[in-house]
Design a protein around this nucleic acid. Structure first.
Lengths: 334, 334
DNA sequence: CTGTTAGCGCTTTCAC
DNA sequence: GTGAAAGCGCTAACAG
C-alpha cells in the first residue's frame, strides 16, 4: 500500500494539463463557466491521477461545508436508528453528509460533540430534544449554522424543532384504554434522560388522574429497557398487584416482553391482562396478536429535520415548530 | 439568535489579552510550553468570549485530523447498530469522532462516501467487508489513512481487517444440528449484498453436502429480512415441505418470526420443527424458549476495529487479520 | 473563458 | 516562554 505518500493537489492536476489551478477548481466545484473541452481535459486528468480534492482547504476558503452534525443519545435504541436513517437518506440526496455523534444520554458528552462538530464548520446541526448544558445551548445559538432540535415540540427551540407531542401521545393512549373499559392501570418504563418518554408518562398520569383512575407505576429502569425488562417487570408487577387489568409499557420492546411472558404463563390477553406499548416497532406487529401502540413516523421525522436544515441553508424560511402527527394503532392486545 | 455573525478567531482571543495568536494556539493545542499564568489568562478569555477553534484551519495547517470515517451498509440492520456503537465508544475515549456513512448496500454510494471522507482528511477509515468498487478500493489503498475492513476475515484486506469467520459459523451451526439428529434441513435468508450472510450460507451448504444431507432453501429476500419475513417464510416452507425437521434462519429476527408462528400454529419446537438463527440478538433469548443461535461479539468487533485504527495512527503495528471467535448458543429450540 | 492576487484561520519553524 | 513569517490547498474577486 502507498500509505504515507504526498497528497496530490489541484495544482498538480493543473500542471499536468498546462492550466492554472483556478480552472481545475471551477470544473470540480461546478461554479463559473469553463470551456467544455477544457472541462473534459481536467476531468480526464483528475481521473487518471486519482486526485481527491482536499475539502478542508476548500471549505476553509469558501466558508461552506456539506457536513451536518447529528447528535443523538443512541443509534441502537428505540426510534433513533430509524430517525438517523431518515436524516442520512435525505441529506445524502442533497449532497450533504451526516456526522453522527452518540451521547449515550450524557449531557457533557453532548456538549463536547456539539463543540467538535461546530469546530469542523458543520453547515447545520440536528440535536435531540431541548435539554442541553448551558454551554451547549449557547454554542448552538451563537453558531451561524441552522439548528434543528428533534423529537419533541413542547418547548422553546433554540432555532427550529420537529417532533411529536409526546404528552398527547400518552394522553391518547389512556383515553383509548379508558374507552375500552379498563380501570386499574399499570405502567412500566423508564424516563431517566429520555425526556420524550417522560412527557408521555406525564400525559398518561394527567389523564388518568383527571378521570379519577389509579396508576400503579412501580419500577423504573435506569437504562433503555428491552424485551427482557418487560418480561421481568410484568412478572413482578403481577405478583404485587394481580388486580391490574392493563399495563402500559414505555416502549414496544418491553411490551413484547410482557406479551411473551403472558403467553408462557397462559394469561389471556386481553382478559387477564391487557398490554399496550409505544413506538410502532415491527416486533409489536409480529406477535401472534398485534400490539396496541402509538406509531411514530420515525423516518419522516428524520427526513423532515434534514429537509429543514437544507432549506434554511438556501435561505428558505421554515416554521420554527413542526409537529408530526402520530398514530394510535389499536391492536388485539387491548 | 445570532445566526450569521462573524466567527471569532484565535487572533480575537489573543488581542483581548494582549498576546499573539501563537500563544493561544499553544495553549489550546496543548503543544509546546506556556507560562501557567499566561495559560490561565488564555483559557479565561476563551471561555468568556465563547471562542470555538476552527479545526478546519487547524487540520489544514497541521495535516492532522481526529475524524475517522465509518462506512456501513446500515445502522438499523442486524449487528451493525452494535458494531457502530462499539466504534463510536472507543473512538470517543481517544478524543476521535466517527463520521458515519450509510451505503444502504449500494457500492456506488459506498464509493462516494469513501471519497467524501477522504476528502475531509479522515485520520482513518473503517469500512464493511472486502467488496468495494474498483475506484473505492484504489482510493482506500492510496490514502495515507489506515484502513480497517470489518466483519469478515476470509479475504485479502487492503490494509487491516477484523471480523468473524462466517463460513465456519455456518458450518458449526450445521454440525451442532447434525449431532442433534436432524436430517432434513431448511434455510431461509437473504444474501444479496450481505456477503457475511452468504459466507455463512456457504458454510451451511458445504457441511451439509459433505454429510450427504439435503438442504431446502426456497426463498430469498432482496432486503434485510425481519420478523415478519421469518413468519411468512416458514409458513410457506412448511406448506411446501412438511417433512423438513429443522429450519436455519439467516438472522435471529427471522428466527423469532418463525418461532412466533410455530407457537401460534401449535407446532412443537423442537419436535414438529426445530429453529436456529444467527446473531445472538436479544429477541432470540427473550422468547419462551431460548433460541439456538450463533452469537457474535458485536460491540467488541467495533471496539477492536477502532482500536486498530487508533494504534496504527500512533505507529504501533497491528496484525493484518484479526479474527474474533463467535459463540454457538445452544438454546431450547433445537 | 481563463489567469492573478489575496486570504480563509490555523500551525510550523525559527528567531529572540 | 513568546513572537514573526510562511504556508497548508483551496476559492473569491477581480482583471483581462
Amino acid at each position: 500500500m502507498a500509505k504515507g505518500q504526498k497528497r496530490l493537489t489541484q495544482r498538480d492536476v493543473a500542471r499536468s494539463i498546462g492550466m492554472s489551478d483556478m480552472t481545475v477548481s471551477r470544473v470540480l466545484a461546478g461554479r463559473g463557466v469553463v470551456n467544455s473541452k477544457t472541462r473534459e481535459k481536467v476531468l480526464k486528468a483528475v481521473a487518471e491521477l486519482g486526485y481527491v480534492p482536499n475539502r478542508l482547504a476548500g471549505s476553509l476558503a469558501s466558508a461552506r461545508s456539506n457536513q451536518v452534525g447529528v447528535v443523538l443519545p443512541s443509534i441502537t435504541v428505540g426510534i433513533f436508528p430509524d430517525v438517523a436513517a431518515g436524516i442520512a437518506a435525505e441529506l445524502e440526496k442533497a449532497g450533504y453528509n451526516p456526522v453522527i455523534g452518540i451521547t449515550d444520554y450524557d449531557p457533557d458528552r453532548e456538549e463536547r460533540l456539539i463543540e467538535s462538530m461546530l469546530s469542523w464548520n458543520a453547515a447545520g446541526m440536528i440535536v435531540n430534544d431541548f435539554v442541553h448544558t448551558r454551554r451547549a445551548a449557547r454554542l448552538l445559538s451563537v453558531s451561524p449554522a441552522p439548528v434543528v432540535e428533534i423529537m419533541q415540540v413542547a418547548g422553546d427551540p433554540i432555532d427550529h424543532c420537529v417532533g411529536f407531542n409526546h404528552f398527547e401521545a400518552g394522553a391518547e393512549m389512556v383515553r383509548h384504554l379508558i374507552s375500552r373499559g379498563y380501570r386499574r392501570f399499570g405502567f412500566l418504563g423508564w424516563h431517566g434522560m429520555e425526556f420524550a418518554a417522560s412527557a408521555r408518562y406525564e400525559g398518561i398520569r394527567t389523564v388518568l388522574s383527571q378521570a379519577g383512575f389509579e396508576l400503579f407505576a412501580p419500577s423504573w429502569y435506569n437504562a433503555p429497557p428491552g424485551i427482557q425488562d418487560g418480561t421481568q417487570g410484568l412478572s413482578k408487577l403481577r405478583a404485587a398487584r394481580p388486580d391490574i387489568d392493563v399495563v402500559i409499557f414505555g416502549n414496544d420492546l418491553m411490551a413484547a416482553g410482557g406479551y411473551l411472558l403472558s403467553m408462557k404463563m397462559g394469561w389471556q390477553v386481553p382478559g387477564d391482562i391487557a398490554i399496550a406499548g409505544f413506538g410502532g416497532m415491527e416486533i409489536g406487529q409480529s406477535l401472534s396478536q398485534k400490539l396496541t401502540t402509538i406509531d411514530f413516523p420515525r423516518q419522516s421525522v428524520g427526513r423532515t429535520a434534514a429537509r429543514t436544515v437544507l432549506n434554511l441553508l438556501v435561505g428558505q424560511s421554515m416554521p420554527r415548530v413542526r409537529e408530526f402527527p402520530f398514530d394510535l394503532v389499536v391492536g388485539e392486545t387491548t
